[in-house]
């Protein structure tokens, strides 16, 4: 079966995740071989997702981890006191 570009676009996300079935995968791959536009959409989407997922893109606030563990330490201590009282 020959796929139209629009049909390929509908499955790009699932194709990236590797969750399309074998038959569809084959059809998509055959389409990609000769369609520059769909290949560019697929590759650029992958490119964007890799960049977005990079730790540098969404940085944690400076000192976040330290403050989190400080707060947690306080909580653990106060829970200890509570159990001593009982």
């Amino acid at each position: 079966m020959k796929l139209e570009c629009k049909h390929v676009w509908e499955h790009i996300s699932e194709y990236i995740d590797g969750s399309v079935d074998a038959k569809l995968r084959e059809d998509i791959e055959r389409h990609l071989e000769h369609c520059e536009i769909c290949s560019a959409i697929l590759d650029s989407t992958r490119n964007i997702l890799i960049l977005t997922a990079d730790d540098r893109t969404f940085e944690l606030p400076v000192g976040y981890s330290e403050r989190l563990h400080e707060r947690l330490a306080k909580e653990l201590k106060s829970a200890e006191k509570d159990s001593e009282k009982e």
Binding site: I12, S13, E14, S44, I48, L49
Partner: peptide, 8 residues
Amino acid sequence: HRARMMLQ
């Protein structure tokens, strides 16, 4: 799918 396409 929609989120990824909008992002692209």
